[in-house]
Write a protein that binds this DNA or RNA. Structure first.
Length: 464
RNA sequence: GCAGCCGUAGCUUAGCUGGCUCAAAGCGCUGCCCUGUCACGGCAGAGAACGUGGGUUCGAAUCCCAUCGGCUGCGCCA
């Protein structure tokens, strides 16, 4: 007999079925034994009576979380014995065949609860067990649904999904890079991408016009509840689009995600309010204001913060820096003006905000080489450095670059908000600690001397 | 890098103004009893270097120092 999902057993009522899964719980009454079996789709009550001696003796040995398969009749339960709490509560399996596929030791913690009552340290160490928990399983499935929806939506809009390299080049601006030593070029290093920013802009030069990617990004900064060293964002870029077109697309996408996947949530304002940066700072003293009135969990207050300043003064470094990044297009292409009054220059830059969290940011990009160079100059880069670090961009822009822009909404934070989770670790299958460790894998870890030798690396100071 | 909180059976916690509770409880686990439960029930039992190292003291889970680990926030996060 072919194994079916537990959720399908309802359709087999009156007939026979075979299911496989984990033992969710056992209730033994001396003679009659109830075993709840669990698979990805749900839980089913199995009944074992002493009349079938072989099965009964086998069932007595079974313990929670063992992996078993069972076949038998799917019967309607007697009327007063239905369980409205589970999907298959109207039926049960009368077991006629029972096999143990794999035994299990007692789990290090209970997976019946939501998990709030168990320390995160131990949950992360045994994350594969933690993921058996209903709450985590739901989070993974909902996350996948959202990503699937995004894919289908954008592809319908004419976007092309393209993978960009994970091994790439360190960029001097922005967050600290994770670096990867090169074996074939000893002394040189790759960097993991903080975002596919430059690649996606170069794809615009390639004529892709509408690109997207569910992109993993890496930043070697200290994590927070809403920040991980590696995270996922919906990275997208469009040619010939203005700010309005990009924001409308995102607005439309997110309205439909909510409608389709989270119908119980209420979007407070449609269209999403557009608030200028200066207005937001004046009115809310924040560039990611929480616009909900009642702070209700089912309320969603989306907003776009627009018209960010192009530059900010960095006191410690005594120089101007890009608020967003140097590729952002200033609202003027008057080179003299940019160089003379950096503080007065606004940018085509926008943040995407939800319930007081920044869930994305984007901009139109500078596509005129002279504007890009002026921006770098304001930021204190020497011509020579500009060409060393960004020469490929400037060169590319010489060969016919369309005006372009994009946005990159984060997936993790968005999911945490929608699923009412207190931090993004709960929506990431294998997340890292506040110290960027992976407690389950034991990463990061030392490498052996042979590996170091190949890379021509020497560790001068070892942590004890 | 800085600050705060936390670390006692498998899990969650009590004890922590030092000795008579250097260990207790609930859940889980093991065994026995129980034919309809679904947080099954009943009885019995096993299970703890009190994160680690050092110090103070006649005596430390309890006080001090260091260290390791977890969480939160600041710095940082183009």
């Amino acid at each position: 007999m072919k194994r079916i999902y537990i959720s399908q057993t309802l359709k087999s009522t009156g007939g026979s079925a075979k299911v496989s899964g984990w033992v969710n719980s056992i209730r033994s009454h001396g003679k009659i034994i109830f075993i709840d079996i669990r698979d990805i789709t749900g839980v089913l009550q199995m009944v074992i009576s002493p009349s079938n001696k072989d099965i009964y003796e086998k069932a007595k040995q079974i313990r929670p979380e063992w992996v078993i398969e069972a076949a038998g009749k799917i019967n309607e339960r007697p009327k007063n014995m239905e369980n409205p709490d589970i999907e298959t509560g109207k039926v049960e399996m009368s077991v006629e065949e029972l096999n143990v596929l794999s035994k299990a030791e007692t789990l290090p913690f209970s997976i019946e609860s939501e998990g709030y009552d168990i320390s995160e340290e131990i949950r992360m160490k045994y994350r594969y067990l933690d993921l058996r928990r209903e709450r985590l399983r739901r989070n993974m499935i909902m996350r996948q649904k959202v990503i699937q929806f995004i894919r289908e939506f954008l592809i319908k809009e004419g976007f092309i999904e393209i993978e960009t390299p994970i091994l790439t080049k360190s960029t001097p601006e922005g967050a600290r890079d994770f670096i990867v030593p090169s074996r074939l070029q000893p002394g040189s290093f790759y960097a993991l991408p903080q975002s596919p920013q430059q690649y996606k802009q170069l794809l615009m030069v390639s004529g892709i016009e509408k690109y997207f990617q569910i992109a993993r990004c890496f930043r070697d900064e200290d994590p927070r509840g809403d920040r991980q060293p590696e995270f996922t964002q919906l990275d997208l870029e469009m040619s010939f689009a203005d700010e309005e077109e990009i924001l409308k697309l995102v607005e439309n996408l997110y309205i439909n995600i909510i409608k389709d996947i989270f119908p119980q949530k209420k979007i407070l304002q449609i269209p999403f309010p557009r608030i200028s940066y200066s207005e937001a700072m004046k009115e809310y003293n924040s560039d990611k204001p929480d616009l909900r009135k009642n702070k209700n969990k089912d309320e969603l207050a989306f907003a776009f913060i627009v018209d960010f300043p192009m530059f900010e003064w960095k006191k410690e470094e005594n120089r101007w820096d890009a608020v967003h990044h140097p590729f952002t297009r200033p609202k003027t292409d008057n080179i003299d003006e940019i160089k003379k009054n950096p503080d007065k220059i606004l940018a085509y830059q926008y943040d995407f905000v939800l319930n007081g969290f920044e869930i994305g940011g984007g901009s139109l990009r500078s596509y005129k080489p002279e504007v890009l160079e002026a921006v770098f100059e304001v930021m204190g880069h020497k011509k020579k450095d500009i060409h060393q670090k960004f020469g490929h961009m400037l060169t590319a822009f010489k060969y016919g670059v369309p005006p372009h822009g994009g946005i990159a909404p984060g997936i993790d934070r968005f999911m945490a908000i929608l699923l009412n989770e207190p931090n993004i670790r709960e929506v990431i299958a294998f997340s890292k600690t506040g110290d960027s460790r992976d407690l389950m894998m034991g990463a990061p870890d030392i490498v052996n001397d042979e590996q170091l030798k190949e890379l021509k690396l020497k560790i001068t100071k070892k942590k004890k």
